[in-house]
Simulated scan of single mutants.
Amino acid sequence: MFTTLLKEVGRGKRGARDLTYEEALEAADWIMSRKATPAQMGAFFIAERIKMESVEELEAFVTVCRNSAYRAPIQEGLDCAGPYDGRVKTFFASFATAFLLASAGLPVTLHGAKSLPPKWGVTLLDMLAELGIGKSQLTRDRVVQAAKATGVLFVDTEEWCPPLGELRGIREELGMRTVLNTAEKLIDFSHSPYLVFGVFHNTVFDRMSKLLTDLKYRRALIVQGTEGSEDLFIERPTRTYIVEDGEARLHVIDPEQFGMEATLPEKTEWSAAEQVETVEAVLQGTAHIGYVNQVLLNAAVRLRLAERAESVEEALYQCKALLESGAAWERYAAWRSSLLGEGTPSPIGSVK
């Protein structure tokens, strides 16, 4: 019974114990299938937050989320796993970066949902709505078609994993992060061998490194990025962990090392419209140099992570050329047109 599992994690900070992987699978199944009551689910989420989820518990929830989702090897590339509670104070560099990477031949999967607690920031869905792209344009067939043509796949997570949508109400009522905030980012809808994963606190590096090793990504980069996202800072160094072959190592990425450091304009809050405007300005080469450099650095590091360049320096050279030539903007324009139903674009370049 679920109450037995709940008692094990709910005995307080000193008395609670971590569930075994098998027990956590059972708990996750009770929650994802909504066999547990709302009160039981809320109690479990809070107890886990107090205790802190173990690697086995996190992996179990990822497994059940994956089993509850539509997943297909649509493209072998990079999965960008940022926070689903969005951005409030910082630029959404990953969105622009995706089209630059695709123009370099690296397919990218982006995913998200409507804003969630605790941050309630601007999400990718909010940004797509600014472009006139809503749920009716984000059908599975259409987003897969756009991905095959351009190399960028966007997944509305709650559409592809319906149980998460059905649990939204209780998550909103709790108003705090739960184990699902981690699990939903690791569903890996397109079976990507490479992952870039954002975290807020460096205290989770070790746990996340073990989890990503257990999930068998070929290479992964854990980033303590802007607002807990996978985006590297451009105005200062970023702490990251590289996870590969069962090992994890700290790697501090300093933009100054690559001559990329820049001061960003002072901005306390972003709207979805401002995010889209800046993304398009970056891809057209008219944005503030700080945002351009941030996208270039993130793209170069991710190309290197995905073994598409021998060094970050080589990748930077490649990315600058693609941005200046308009290739990244072409990807974005074709992807946007495809989702808006303005004609089916022919495949662009070589995206494998």
Score class of each variant (00 low, 15 high):
122 V>W: 11
174 L>N: 01
126 D>C: 04
336 R>W: 01
254 D>N: 14
293 N>F: 04
101 L>G: 07
173 E>N: 12
112 G>D: 15
68 S>H: 14
252 V>K: 10
157 T>S: 15
22 E>Q: 14
248 A>N: 05
164 L>Y: 12
27 A>M: 12
10 G>Y: 00
317 Y>T: 13
132 G>W: 14
318 Q>H: 11
55 V>K: 09
34 R>N: 10
60 A>F: 11
13 K>M: 09
149 A>C: 13
57 E>S: 10
324 E>W: 09
240 T>Y: 01
279 V>A: 05
328 A>I: 10
201 H>I: 12
127 M>P: 03
126 D>L: 09
82 G>L: 08
341 G>T: 00
88 V>I: 15
16 A>V: 03
128 L>Q: 05
233 F>S: 04
104 A>G: 14
210 K>T: 14
18 D>K: 08
175 G>S: 06
306 A>R: 04
161 C>M: 08
115 S>G: 11
42 G>A: 10
258 F>A: 02
291 Y>N: 06
337 S>P: 00
131 L>V: 08
80 C>L: 15
76 E>R: 15
162 P>N: 00
333 A>H: 01
158 E>L: 14
126 D>M: 08
297 L>I: 11
163 P>L: 11
132 G>P: 09
274 E>C: 05
61 F>D: 03
153 L>R: 11
183 A>V: 12
216 K>E: 15
52 M>D: 06
171 R>F: 08
267 K>G: 11
350 S>W: 05
139 T>N: 00
292 V>H: 00
57 E>N: 09
34 R>S: 12
30 W>V: 07
263 T>I: 05
192 S>R: 06
330 E>C: 08
240 T>D: 00
75 Q>F: 00
286 T>K: 13
344 T>H: 08
79 D>F: 12
247 E>C: 03
105 G>V: 09
199 V>Y: 06
80 C>M: 15
334 A>N: 12
75 Q>N: 07
59 E>W: 02
250 L>P: 11
217 Y>E: 09
2 F>W: 11
101 L>Y: 05
333 A>R: 04
226 T>P: 00
186 L>K: 05
97 T>L: 09
105 G>F: 13
152 V>F: 07
314 E>P: 04
43 A>Y: 02
323 L>P: 09
146 A>E: 04
261 E>S: 13
79 D>A: 15
115 S>W: 06
250 L>Y: 11
15 G>E: 06
352 K>F: 07
101 L>E: 03
156 D>A: 09
89 K>D: 04
332 Y>F: 12
87 R>I: 08
210 K>G: 02
122 V>Y: 06
297 L>D: 07
129 A>C: 03
168 R>D: 03
306 A>M: 08
214 D>S: 09
213 T>I: 10
27 A>R: 04
287 A>F: 00
279 V>K: 03
49 R>C: 03
60 A>E: 08
182 T>K: 06
238 T>F: 03
101 L>N: 09
17 R>K: 10
199 V>P: 01
205 F>M: 10
270 W>E: 13
167 L>W: 08
43 A>G: 15
316 L>H: 15
